[in-house]
Design a protein around this nucleic acid. Structure first.
Length: 445
DNA sequence: TCCTCTGACACATTTGAATCGT
DNA sequence: AACGATTCAAATGTGTCAGAGG
């Protein structure tokens, strides 16, 4: 274990999402992310804060994209509808933060941005972008691994974090005009398309026709587009559930964790019914993590939305939970957690008790790992259906015959996803299996 | 015909090198 | 000579839109 004797003792790590309000604004409508052949950045982009790391221990930060479910969607009449089963999972890639590996102090001293992460629909992409299918839903997962170098990753403990409001639909062209407007309003690169912007030439001429076209396509545009209630009501009707009962936005605020998007509502429904932990359904800050335990290395997952279910959640609660989505990892089965108090501010900029550190500057090797993506198909359950690109509703047999082998076949699928999650986080015995799909078999830095 | 995807386009920001002044 | 501020051009990131293609 590259990280030394304390490698198993990664407790109290807390990850908070930067700019959660913006994410929620998008999520309320139904975030869409453009994917292009050359690769497209996300907006909003993923930016997180970390605390609770061991300042002198080195960590690697990774992001991958997990299918939200096993469906393909289509945009029909101002709402998303299920359009069939999801397509086979594209080559699974994980984005490695370019600073990796870096000491905990480095990660904690400022927010960690994944600005340069790009999404593509080009399954033959050679640039290391994360490959997604259009019209499918995904959510990013953030992994933090205590490891001295990239090659130690596969032997180390993964701690995984997700934020429900970061889920999105991958598209090649925006479907929802509300999302387009939000992007234009918030993305500085799109300033030229703002109504009040300096661009007087393009918008006035083209915008109306565009809207007209979309109007034609949507066939049932509401005359009052700005009504959020109407909007929420109209969106995602294919997954309606209890959409009609959505409270008005003002009312939603108090319980926005529960309903701030139809997607969330849908996920939550599943969480409510399927979570073995019986987590408070309102706390939908889905958090996934792989936590080591002495014997079985079970996975722990709980729901947090604006607050942590752990006693130490006062931190996140106090900072509002409205400012940042946050997640604090726990190591419930490991008693010997390193004694670092994550609740107190980290003066990581100060002298490190670890002696001189090599603080790698932003290194120019952002890359991807060809890890097989875990599947959080059942939000209420531990999300790590490792190696299964689909949730339980999907026939696993699909992967026993991987077809034309454009995509690497996953590891064998077992019913015990806990064990697989362990497999993911730890690599204890099944060397042969791992060696089939080396962690770094596809890297592009 | 419908739906999705692609590529060119105009406009914006970002980045880095070159220049200038202190 | 060294440093910081400013300028400028190239690179890059955006949404739009017409048209291709399944």
């Amino acid at each position: 274990m590259a990280a030394g004797p304390d490698a198993y003792l990664q407790g109290n790590i807390r990850m908070t999402l930067e700019d959660p309000e913006l994410w929620r604004t998008f999520h309320e409508i139904g975030t869409e992310m453009i994917i292009t052949k050359p690769g497209r950045r996300m907006f909003p982009h993923c930016k997180v804060n970390l605390t609770g790391l061991i300042p002198c221990a080195k960590y690697i930060l990774l992001v991958d994209m997990v299918p939200e479910d096993g469906f393909r969607y289509k945009w029909n009449k101002e709402k998303w509808e299920v359009a069939g089963k999801a397509e086979p999972q594209p080559p699974c890639r994980t984005y490695l933060h370019p600073d990796s590996p870096a000491p905990g102090s480095h990660w904690m001293k400022q927010s960690v941005s994944f600005l340069k992460l790009k999404l593509t629909n080009n399954t033959l992409d050679q640039h290391g972008h994360i490959i997604l299918h259009s019209m499918h839903r995904y959510h990013p997962r953030f992994h933090i691994v205590q490891a001295d170098d990239l090659f130690s990753v596969r032997w180390s403990v993964f701690q995984t974090f997700t934020f429900p409001e970061t889920s999105f639909t991958a598209v090649t062209a925006y479907q929802n005009t509300k999302i387009t407007k939000l992007k234009i309003d918030h993305n500085p690169f799109a300033k030229g398309f703002r109504e009040e912007g300096t661009n007087k030439k393009r918008r006035p001429n083209k915008s109306p026709s565009c809207l007209e076209k979309r109007q034609k396509m949507s066939d049932m545009r509401d005359s009052e587009e700005e009504n959020p209630q109407d909007f929420l009501h109209s969106s995602y009707e294919g997954y309606d559930g209890d959409e009609a009962e959505l409270p008005k936005k003002k009312e939603v605020d108090d319980i926005k964790e529960e309903r701030y998007s139809p997607w969330t509502a849908e996920r939550e429904h599943r969480a409510r019914t399927e979570s073995p932990a019986g987590a408070d359904a309102r706390d939908l800050y889905n958090a996934e993590q792989l936590v080591p335990a002495p014997a079985s290395y079970p996975l722990y997952r709980f729901h947090e939305y604006g607050k942590s279910p752990s006693p130490s959640s006062s931190v996140s609660s106090s900072n509002g939970g409205s400012e940042r989505g946050s997640f604090e990892s726990r190591v419930p089965d490991v008693a010997t957690v390193p004694d670092h108090d994550s609740s107190k501010p980290h003066d990581v900029a100060g002298p490190s008790p670890c002696g001189p550190q090599h603080l790698p500057g932003p290194q120019d090797y952002p890359g991807v790992l060809n890890m097989t993506v875990a599947q959080a198909g059942k939000p209420g359950v531990i999300g790590h259906h490792i190696y299964s690109p689909y949730n339980a509703e999907q026939p696993l047999g699909q992967w026993s015959n991987p077809g034309p082998a454009q995509y690497p076949p996953p590891h064998h699928l077992t019913a015990d996803y806990t064990a697989q999650a362990v497999h993911h986080g730890y690599h204890h015995g099944n060397v042969a299996e791992w060696s089939q799909y080396p962690l770094f078999s596809y890297s592009c830095w």
